Amino acid sequence: MRVSLRVRYAGPAALAELVRAAEDGGYDGLWVSEPWGVDAGPVLGWCAATTRRLLLGTHVVSVFARTAAATAGLATSLQTLSDGRFRLGLGTSGPQVVEGWHGVAFERPVAVTGETIAVVRAALAGEPLQQGGSRPLRTAWTGGSLTVPIYLGALGPRNQRLTADAADGWTPTPYSPDHHATFAAPLVDRLAGNGRTVAIAPVCPVAMGSDVTALLALEKGWSGLYLGGMGTFYADAARAMGFGDAVAAVREHWRNGDRRAARDAVPDGYADAIGLFGSPQRIRDRIERYAAAGVDELVVELRKPDLGDQLADLRAFRKAVG
């Protein structure tokens, strides 16, 4: 099982420290998220120039944030700059970001994702694209065809089926190995029918220490945001895991503007189910759940806010899991 790091860009100094620690510490890959206001492309270009062996990826870029052809251009640039180490992570995001930040209608998300995959693959292969009734155009890249693995951050059943049919990897968040059979049922069923395989690379929040309750509180702050205010797909995933009553409470508090109550309504059991928290021994014991579920790559997201604590957890986690 590979172990990779997902980072949220917070400036060049912190990025340099985390990337260096991941490269030197034996991590297999580095994923860069793209929240609103940050472009993952330049960040990953810098990472490509300053690393030697880490696999690099977007985790994830919204299919609504760029035209499909522009996404193909992003993949072309990063695959060539990294000497073949790039992976394209795609997702839909949600209407709050797509409409509120990008100013684009959040319509036909699964269809747009499928169309984006098709255009990206065709453009990278050097095939002509004809869009909007104009004459066909080929990519201006003259270095030959490229192959870039495509991962989808798919949670809904239709998007999971699209992953099984057209993608190379599945990288969900949230994810719990304890609920894999239910949570990933559409993906598993479709793969059983079409004979394909995809890499399973879920996000795994991590915080290390002896006070598990305090560490879970770090995750509950993030989960309150995602379950309460970031679209129904995160809430639906938690419901599928059996936390329907808690989701209802979190969302009610969020609608009422009580962020603290929303955080506190997230059960410890939910936070513990979607990440790895505690001492090195506790983490060693619990990481076997991911291997047993068939996870190919664990995408670690550090939950402590302080950079020094993040670096310490980054090193300690890799040592703990071997």
Score class of each variant (00 low, 15 high):
Gly114Phe: 08
Arg52Met: 03
Ala70Tyr: 02
Ala238Arg: 09
Leu216Phe: 10
Ala291Lys: 04
Gly73Ala: 01
Arg284Val: 02
Val112Arg: 14
Ala240Glu: 15
Tyr234Thr: 05
Val104Ser: 03
Tyr9Arg: 04
Ala293Pro: 08
Ala70Pro: 02
Phe86Thr: 01
Ala320Val: 14
Ala273Gly: 14
Gly257Val: 15
His253Cys: 11
Gly26Glu: 14
Val61Ser: 11
Leu18Ala: 07
Arg260Pro: 00
Gly91Met: 11
Ala154Gly: 01
Gly224Val: 06
Val43Met: 13
Val188Gln: 13
Ala122Phe: 02
Ser4Gln: 03
Met208Asn: 05
Trp170Ile: 04
Val148Tyr: 04
Ala262Asp: 07
Gly103Arg: 10
Ala111Lys: 10
Gly103Lys: 11
Leu124Tyr: 05
Pro136Asn: 10
Ala105Lys: 14
Val321Met: 15
Ala320Arg: 12
Gly144Glu: 11
Leu55Glu: 12
Val247Glu: 10
Gly100His: 05
Arg259His: 13
Pro202Tyr: 04
Asp272Ile: 07
Ile287Phe: 04
Leu90Pro: 03
Trp141Tyr: 15
Tyr226Val: 05
Gly133Val: 08
Arg20Asp: 13
Gly143Ala: 05
Val188Met: 09
Leu137Trp: 07
Glu107Trp: 08
Gly275Ser: 03
Arg315Gly: 02
Glu115Tyr: 06
Ile287Gly: 00
Ala246Leu: 05
Gly89Tyr: 02
Thr92Trp: 11
Arg138Ser: 08
Thr171Arg: 01
His179Ala: 15
Ser223Asp: 12
Arg263Ile: 14
Lys319Phe: 10
Arg263Cys: 09
Val266Tyr: 10
Ala69Gly: 03
Gly91Thr: 12
Ser176Ala: 11
Arg138Gln: 10
Phe106Gln: 10
Ser77Pro: 00
Glu219Trp: 09
Ser33Trp: 01
Val19Tyr: 10
Lys220Pro: 04
Gly257Tyr: 13
Ser223Val: 13
Asp211Gln: 13
Ser223Lys: 00
Ala293Ser: 05
Gly132Gln: 03
Ala249Arg: 15
Val203Asn: 11
Arg263Asp: 15
Ser176Met: 08
Val266His: 05
Leu5Cys: 12
Ala49Gln: 15
Leu314Pro: 03
Ala271Pro: 12
Ala214Ser: 14
Leu162Asn: 05
Val38Thr: 15
Pro157Ala: 15
Ala10Asp: 13
Ser210Tyr: 08
